[in-house]
Amino acid sequence: MNVEPEVRQESIETEEVEKYSQWKDAWRRLRKNKMAMIGLGITLVVIFVAIFAPLLAPHDPYYSPVMEDGQAELSMQGPSLSYPLGTDRLGRDILSRIIYGTRISLIVGVITQLIALAIGITLGSVAGYYGGIVDDVISYFINVFLAFPFLLFAIAIMAVFQDPGIEQVFLALGLVTWPGLARIVRGEVMSLKEEEYIEAARSLGAKDFRIMTKHVIPNCLAPIIVTVTLGVAGAILAEAGLSFLGIGAQPPMPSWGLMLNAGRDYLRSDPRMMWFPGLAIMITVLGLNLFGDGLRDVLDPKMRD
C-alpha cells in the first residue's frame, strides 16, 4: 500500500462537497428565469391537452351533424354552452377540433425533429469528426440546403408528392430542418474533438464509434436540445403554413392550419373561425420559444459567467 495519510485526509474533505450535476444546476438557473418558466408551463399544458384530448374534448372532432344527420341549423353556430367556441360550416365543434389539433401539431413537431436529428447528428458529427474531404462534401450539402428559404423549400418538396398529407409534411419539414442542426453539431464536434479527453480515449485504444457515441455526442447535447426545442416550434408554424396553403394536412383532419384555411372565407363576417386556431398556434409556439430561449441562456456556455 502506498496510500499516504495526507491523501486520506484529502478524500474525506470532499465528502462534504455538495452533490451537483450540470443538469441540476441548469434546472436551478432555469427556474429563476420567469419567461422560461411561463414557456415551460404553456408547453406542459399543450402536451397535457394533446395526451388527454379524448377526455377533454366535448364532441367528436370529426363528427359533422350537418353532413351526417342533416342538422343544417348547427352550421356556423356562435359560442354556446354546448359549443363553447361555436361550430364551423359543417357543424363541427371548434373547441374539440382545436383540442385534437394539438395532437397533430405536436406530432408534426416531434417527428419532424426526430428526422432532422437522425440526419443532422449523423452527418454533422461525421463531418466534424473526420474533417477533410468528408467535411467538405457534407458542408457543401448543408450550405446548399440552407441557401433555400425555409418555407419555400418545404413547399417545393410537397409539390413533388402526388397527394399531399400529414406524412409528407413530416418528411418535407424533416428534410428542411436537418441542415441547421447538422451545422450546429458539426461545429460542436469540431471543437470537442480537440478536447484532451477525446485524445485520452484514443490513447486508451477506443474506436471511432465509441469515441463519437460515448465522448463526443453526450457532450454536445445541450445545444442540440435547445435547437430541437426551437425547431419543434418552427415545425408547428411551418405545418400550419403548409396546411393553410392546402398542401399540408388534408380535410377532415383537425389541423390548425387547415382550420385557418376554412375560416378564411368568413374573415369579415365571422372572424372567430380564424381567431381560435390562430390563437392556439400563437400560444403553443410562444410557449416553446420562450422555453427554448430560456434553455439557451442556461445551457449555452458562452452565455454563462
Binding site: E195, E199, A200, A201, S203, L204, G205, K214
Partner: peptide, 17 residues
C-alpha cells in the same frame, strides 16, 4: 495501447465531464 499509456496535462480537460 495496453503497453503504453499517457497522463495528460490538464486535469480539467482530460476527463469526460
Amino acid at each position: 495501447r495496453r503497453e503504453m499509456q499517457m497522463i495528460f496535462q490538464d486535469p480539467y480537460a482530460s476527463l469526460n465531464p
